[in-house]
């Protein structure tokens, strides 16, 4: 491995390698891992099976009967220097607006987040609605849009004891991250609200409408708006 490679490579069992971006810039780290994942997926590398790119790292899994750490790491070392870390993930990023009913039954941890941060619930909502988020990756469960968290004074700890059921549409925070839950699952993140829009559609291709590199914003919605929007699908805004 070249000592100048802007990435750290570690093994994760005999069938996987993790590559973490070390460019000194988060955006470039993120583009590095997604571009690397794309290269591996498109090149049909023998024995390579799955790439899971996230914020600053990518897990590359392979069939150890067909290839091994040495071969995969050599290919990473050869591929990384050829990546253009300033190129956007998509030429045509799409934008989504996500209406959210904050607090109450659908947002049981809003007050908790307010307490942890020393803000009022309104200030937490305002902070959550302020940024235009970039979808960093698709995660668990069911293709969640994994986002950078809003600007809050402290990182939000995960719940000590995860909930056994977080419903579809839950809008949540943990650490310096934020997301929407497309499918009901157990979860330890702080749920601050709920969107009435359906995110995951098993009959659609792709299953979720956003890709890493697309952007989205949250907007407060009233109970009446939520009722009106219930069952609708999250769709991108018309290109302007």
């Amino acid at each position: 491995m070249s000592p100048t490679l802007p990435a750290e490579i570690s093994t994760a069992g005999e069938s996987a390698v993790r590559v973490t971006g070390r460019t000194g810039d988060r955006e470039r780290d993120w583009r590095l891992v997604h571009q690397l994942a794309r290269r591996f997926t498109r090149a049909e590398v023998p024995g390579f099976t799955v790439a899971i790119p996230t914020y600053e790292s990518v897990l590359l899994e392979f069939d150890a009967a067909l290839t091994g750490h040495e071969e995969i790491i050599a290919l990473i070392a050869e591929t990384v220097p050829a990546l253009d870390l300033d190129a956007p993930l998509h030429e045509d990023p799409r934008h989504f607006r996500v209406p959210v009913l904050y607090g109450g039954e659908g947002g049981p941890d809003l007050e908790r987040v307010a307490e942890i941060t020393g803000l009022s619930a309104e200030e937490v909502i305002a902070a959550h609605c302020a940024p235009t988020y970039t979808v960093r990756c698709l995660g668990a469960p069911g293709g969640s849009p994994m986002l950078d968290g809003p600007a809050l004074p402290v990182a939000i700890p995960r719940l000590a004891s995860p909930r056994t059921h977080v419903p579809q549409g839950a809008v949540s925070l943990a650490g310096r991250q934020a997301t929407i839950t497309p499918a009901a699952a157990p979860g330890g993140w702080c749920v601050i609200g709920r969107t009435p829009l359906t995110v995951l559609d098993l009959d659609a291709e792709p299953l979720v409408p956003y890709r890493p590199g697309d952007t989205l914003r949250f907007e407060p919605a009233s109970a009446r708006e939520v009722e009106r929007l219930a069952g609708g699908r999250l769709t991108p805004e018309e290109a302007r």
Partner: peptide, 17 residues
């Protein structure tokens, strides 16, 4: 420390609370 989400391999041995 809170870790940022990343891909975990099948077979990962973890120690949750």
């Amino acid at each position: 420390e809170e870790k940022i989400s990343r891909g975990v391999p099948v077979g990962a041995v973890e120690v949750p609370p």
